[in-house]
């Protein structure tokens, strides 16, 4: 565990979470949420949980971004908040 990486990635994660909840465009919010998922995948590889890291990269960042993008394209892209 490298604490410098730890602190940088954790702060970037909070920033990504706040941005993905404040962006009005739903496709943009989905993409920033994908960035958030890859950041937490990086954090788990750094904390020694490599099995959780590659599961998150495949399932969390990959599949959930894809299904959320599919939902945004089949419904609407605008959001009021």
């Amino acid at each position: 565990m490298i604490w410098q990486f730890d602190i940088i990635i954790l702060i970037l994660m909070v920033v990504a979470a706040i941005i993905s909840l404040r962006v009005k465009d739903l496709l943009g919010a989905t993409m920033v949420f994908g960035i958030y998922s890859f950041l937490i995948c990086l954090l788990w590889a750094e904390m020694g949980a490599v099995d959780v890291a590659f599961t998150e990269a495949a399932v969390g960042a990959g599949v959930s971004t894809v299904i959320m993008t599919a939902t945004v394209f089949s419904t609407t892209r605008r959001s009021r908040d």
Binding site: L21, A29, T30, F33, Y36, I40, M68, V72, S79, D81
Partner: peptide, 17 residues
């Protein structure tokens, strides 16, 4: 507090992680 359903789901995913 979010009004949009997709935004609520993003919040739920953040809570889980």
């Amino acid at each position: 507090t979010k009004n949009n359903l997709i935004k609520k789901l993003i919040g739920m995913a953040v809570f889980q992680t």
